[in-house]
Computed example of a mutant assay.
Amino acid sequence: MEHRDPGPDRPHIPVLIGPILAAVGPVTGHWLDGTFGAGGYTRALLDAGAATVTGVDRDPLALDMAAAWRADYGDRLRLVAGNFSELDQHAGQPLDGVVLDLGVSSMQLDQAARGFSFAKDGPLDMRMAQAGTSAADLVNTAAEQALADILYHYGEERASRRIARAIVAARETAPITTTLQLASIVAGCLPRPKPGQSHPATRSFQAIRIAVNTEFNELIEGLMAAERALKPGGMLAVVTFHSLEDRIVKRFFQNRAGRDAQTNRYAPERAEDAARFTLVTKGALAPDADEIAANPRARSSKLRVGQRTTAPAGPVDPEALGVPMLPDTHATRAKFKSAKPKPVHKGSR
Results as ranks from 00 to 15, higher is better:
Asp96Leu: 03
Tyr152Arg: 15
Ser198Met: 14
Ala183Thr: 10
Gln108Asn: 05
Asp149Tyr: 06
Ala170Asp: 11
Val139Glu: 02
Val139Cys: 06
Ser134Cys: 08
Pro193Met: 12
Gly188Asn: 11
Leu63Gly: 03
Ala66Cys: 12
Thr179Tyr: 08
Asp59Ile: 04
Leu77Arg: 01
Ala68Ile: 08
Leu109Glu: 07
Leu95Arg: 04
Ala166Ile: 13
Ala81Phe: 09
Ile176Val: 15
Asn140Pro: 08
Ala135Pro: 04
Pro191Asp: 11
Arg171Val: 14
Arg158His: 09
Gly132Thr: 05
Leu182Trp: 07
Gly132Asp: 08
Ile167Asn: 07
Gly92Ile: 10
Leu109Lys: 03
Pro175Asn: 07
Leu95Glu: 01
Phe84Pro: 01
Ala68Trp: 11
Asp72Ala: 15
Gln111Phe: 00
Val53Glu: 05
Leu138Phe: 14
Ala112Ser: 14
Arg165Ile: 05
Val80Ala: 07
Thr133Asn: 00
Gly55Met: 12
Thr133Lys: 07
Ala143Met: 04
Arg114Val: 05
Met126Ser: 02
Ala68Cys: 07
Arg192Met: 13
Tyr73Met: 03
Ala170Gln: 13
Leu190Val: 04
Gly55Glu: 06
Gln145Tyr: 01
Pro94Tyr: 09
Gly97Arg: 01
Arg162Thr: 13
Asp72His: 13
Leu87Arg: 00
Ile163Arg: 08
Ala71Gly: 13
Ala66Gln: 03
Arg114Thr: 03
His90Arg: 09
Leu138Asp: 02
Pro94His: 09
Ala142Arg: 04
Val139Phe: 04
Leu102Lys: 00
Asp59Gln: 05
Thr178Gln: 12
Ala148Cys: 07
Pro195Cys: 12
Val53Gly: 02
Ala146Gln: 14
Thr179His: 10
Ala170His: 09
Leu124Ala: 13
Trp69Lys: 02
Ala164Asp: 04
Leu95Asp: 01
Gly74Ile: 07
Leu61Ala: 13
Met107Asn: 00
Met128Leu: 10
Gly103Thr: 05
Pro191Phe: 09
Leu109Asp: 03
Ala143Thr: 10
Thr177Ala: 14
Leu124Gly: 12
Thr173Met: 02
Ala62Cys: 15
Asn140Arg: 11
Ser134Phe: 08
Asp125Glu: 12
Val53Thr: 05
Met65Glu: 14
Pro195Ala: 14
Gly115Cys: 07
Arg76Gly: 04
Arg127Glu: 03
Thr133Gly: 00
Thr179Ser: 06
Gly82Asp: 04
Phe84Asn: 00
Asp149Gln: 14
Arg161Val: 08
Trp69Glu: 10
Asp96Lys: 00
Leu151Cys: 09
Asp88Tyr: 03
Ala143Asn: 01
Leu63Ile: 14
Ser198Leu: 15
Thr54Asn: 13
Met65Cys: 02
Phe118Lys: 05
Arg127Ser: 06
Ala142His: 04
Thr179Met: 10
Arg162Asp: 06
Ser198Arg: 15
Ala62Ser: 14
Phe84Thr: 04
Arg76Lys: 15
Leu190Phe: 02
Arg78Cys: 07
Asp59Thr: 06
Ser85Met: 03
His153Glu: 11
Arg58Ile: 01
Ile176Asp: 13
Gly122Thr: 15
Ala166Cys: 12
Val53Arg: 01
Val168Arg: 12
Gln181Phe: 11
Pro60His: 08
Ala119Cys: 02
Pro94Ala: 11
Cys189Gln: 08
Ser105Lys: 09
Arg158Cys: 06
Gly74Ser: 07
Leu77Pro: 01
Leu95Tyr: 06
Glu157Cys: 11
Tyr152Pro: 02
Glu86Met: 09
Ala112Ile: 10
Ala81Gly: 03
Pro94Gly: 11
Pro193Thr: 11
